[in-house]
Structure formats: structure tokens, C-alpha cells
Design a protein around this nucleic acid. Structure first.
Ligand SMILES: [Mn+2]
Ligand SMILES: [Mn+2]
Ligand SMILES: [Zn+2]
Ligand SMILES: [Zn+2]
Lengths: 154, 154
DNA sequence: TACAATATTGTAATCATTACAAATAAAGAG
DNA sequence: CTCTTTATTTGTAATGATTACAATATTGTA
């Protein structure tokens, strides 16, 4: 079964009418698990859907959020990012390449005594810093005597 | 020693010249650990500093962030919130009263194998939902047959 | 086909934040 | 205490992501 079909299925399971636009937006999110922004989704789909409006992308993502098909990524850097992976997991934001990485947070299922009796509806864990790739690239620059801002501790 | 004095001391320790405005903004953050926004700080200090400009509050907070005197609160709800408590801790955002609660996250000092070799500069944990008070207030409404949106699971 | 409900679109408004240049205040030299 | 330089503060305008809203197009149903 291809992605378009799984998108249709997912939409129907969640009682969303599978319009062309919705199918494509969801399929894009499923095949590009890079936590895209509205702008990214819009630009990526424009060739296929030339009449697409950015408002529709906003509307559709709001709908998906309401139906819990996608989750917002808790990385507060300019635009909002969206994630079709609705499992609880953490995100690492690299401030150099601006990529967003996933990591597991199962260990986080620990007690939070201060929140006893609170109704916890969403958990959000994000770290930020410099990813491995960007550190390596920077090391080369350092060899050439360029300096690196930022430190190891947190 | 009063708050103004500790603010001055803190500024000097961090090589920030202790101007009146800076002292007041820092003192406000120290005495009001409610994670205020620029707008809140501005409105609160306006009576004491009638010439205060909102731009100055923005500038000052940027300076404090750069010097690591304050941290941004990773709650992405409209405006940015600031925290003079720079220890690592988590935040709970209540979507009803919009208050932000602190909780301890020492347990989170766990391995994240996916991030091996990454330079982690900031850790951010926030949960959201409904706080204890708001749940209680709502229970009263429920008794009067008003319904409550949202559920217990996360 | 005709009608009603739903989905999409384009434009304008909102609003927090940033850019920037002018005005003010403080520091330092003589 | 002046003059000069530097740092701070201020007001206004620009930016940019998001939202509001009304018009248009599409779809489902009879
Ligand atoms: Mn993810
Ligand atoms: Mn806090
Ligand atoms: Zn990177
Ligand atoms: Zn509450």
C-alpha cells in the first residue's frame, strides 16, 4: 500500500473527509518526517497542487491538530513545526543547521509530585544545541583557527 | 539586603552596568517568579518608571538572556515568558488559567543515546493541561451540568 | 439538475517582535 | 567644571507568522 492510500485510510479513520489537499498534506508529513513548517509544506506541494493556498495549509493543519493526527513540535524558533509522529518523544533543535532530531523519552515516565492531581494533556521535551554533524564541520574550521561560540555544559 | 540591592549585585557580577531600568526589571523578575511576559513587566514597572519604553524591556531581556541571567520559558503560547530561575526545571502550562507552574526534573539526568556526541546547551521540559485549581473549579460546573472538554490521559 | 453543506482561496487585519535612528544620560579626559 | 565619547533609552516604522473573514469552488445528496 502506497503513502497516498495510507493517508486516505488515516483520514477516514479519523472522520476527516479525504480531499485531495488533505491527502497530499498528510502524505507529505508521513513521508517527510523532518517536522516541516507550513511554508515548507506549502512550497513542497505547490508544483503538484498549483491552486494551493497557504491558508488551506494552515486550516488543514489546524484540523489535523484538533483530530490529533499531528502534534506541534515544541521548538519555539520562528515558525511552528508539525510532526505526524504522535508518539511521545523528545526533540533536539540544532541551532547551526536548524534541523530537528527525535529522541526517545520513555524514561521520562517518572513521577512529578508537584503536579499531583493536575490533568496532563501533553508532554513536551526539547533540547537545543549543536548536532554531531555541525560539531564535526566546526572542528575543521577550528583547525583553521576559526573560533566556536558555545560550550559543552548545559 | 533588599531585592534592589541583590539585583544590583547580580548585575555587577555579570558585568552589566546597573542602570535604574535594569535594576527594576531584574528585581521584578526576582520578586515575581510567575514567568512574566514583556508586556507584564512593562505594565508593572510603568508606574515607577513613567518614561519606560517597551523596546527597553525587550532590549534588557535580550541582554539578560545573552548574559544568562534569565532563561526563556519553553511554553509556546503567544508571547515569550521569562524566568529568573536559571536552574534546570520543568514548566506546566494550564490552558484554563494560563498560569505556569514549576516542577523538578532532576530525574531527567538520564542518557539519551540518540544524542551521543551532540552539544546540548539547553534542556526544556514542559507539560500542559489543566491545573488542580482549575479542575476543582470545573468540577463545580460539572455538578451544575456544564460539560468539560479535555480528558485525563496524555 | 438543483440544493445544501463543506472545502478552498485571496485579501486584509492582527500582534508580538525587531530594526533603526534620534534623543538622553553617563563616563572619561583635560 | 566643560567637552567629547560611549552607553542607554526611546519612539516609530517595518517585519513576518498567524488569523479572520468573506467570496468562490467543490462535493454529496436528492
Ligand atoms: Mn518528532
Ligand atoms: Mn520556572
Ligand atoms: Zn546541526
Ligand atoms: Zn489553571
Amino acid at each position: 500500500m502506497n503513502v497516498l492510500d495510507s493517508a486516505v485510510k488515516l483520514l477516514q479513520e479519523n472522520e476527516i473527509r479525504p480531499s485531495l489537499t488533505r491527502i497530499h498534506i498528510l502524505a507529505y508529513l508521513l513521508t517527510n518526517p523532518v517536522h516541516p513548517t507550513v511554508e515548507q509544506i506549502y512550497q513542497a506541494l505547490l508544483p503538484q497542487i498549483p491552486t494551493l493556498s497557504k491558508t488551506t495549509v494552515y486550516n488543514t493543519l489546524d484540523l489535523f491538530l484538533a483530530k490529533k493526527l499531528v502534534k506541534p513540535v515544541g521548538v519555539e524558533y520562528k515558525e511552528k513545526h508539525y510532526d505526524a509522529n504522535t508518539q511521545n518523544h523528545g526533540h533536539f533543535f540544532c541551532r547551526v543547521c536548524e534541523k530537528i532530531f527525535d529522541f526517545d523519552t520513555h524514561y521520562i515516565e517518572t513521577e512529578t509530585p508537584e503536579l499531583k492531581g493536575f490533568q496532563i494533556e501533553a508532554k513536551n521535551v526539547y533540547y537545543s544545541g549543536v548536532c554531531l554533524d555541525c560539531r564535526h564541520k566546526n572542528k575543521h574550521k577550528e583547525d583553521k583557527n576559526e573560533k566556536f561560540e558555545g560550550n559543552q555544559d548545559c
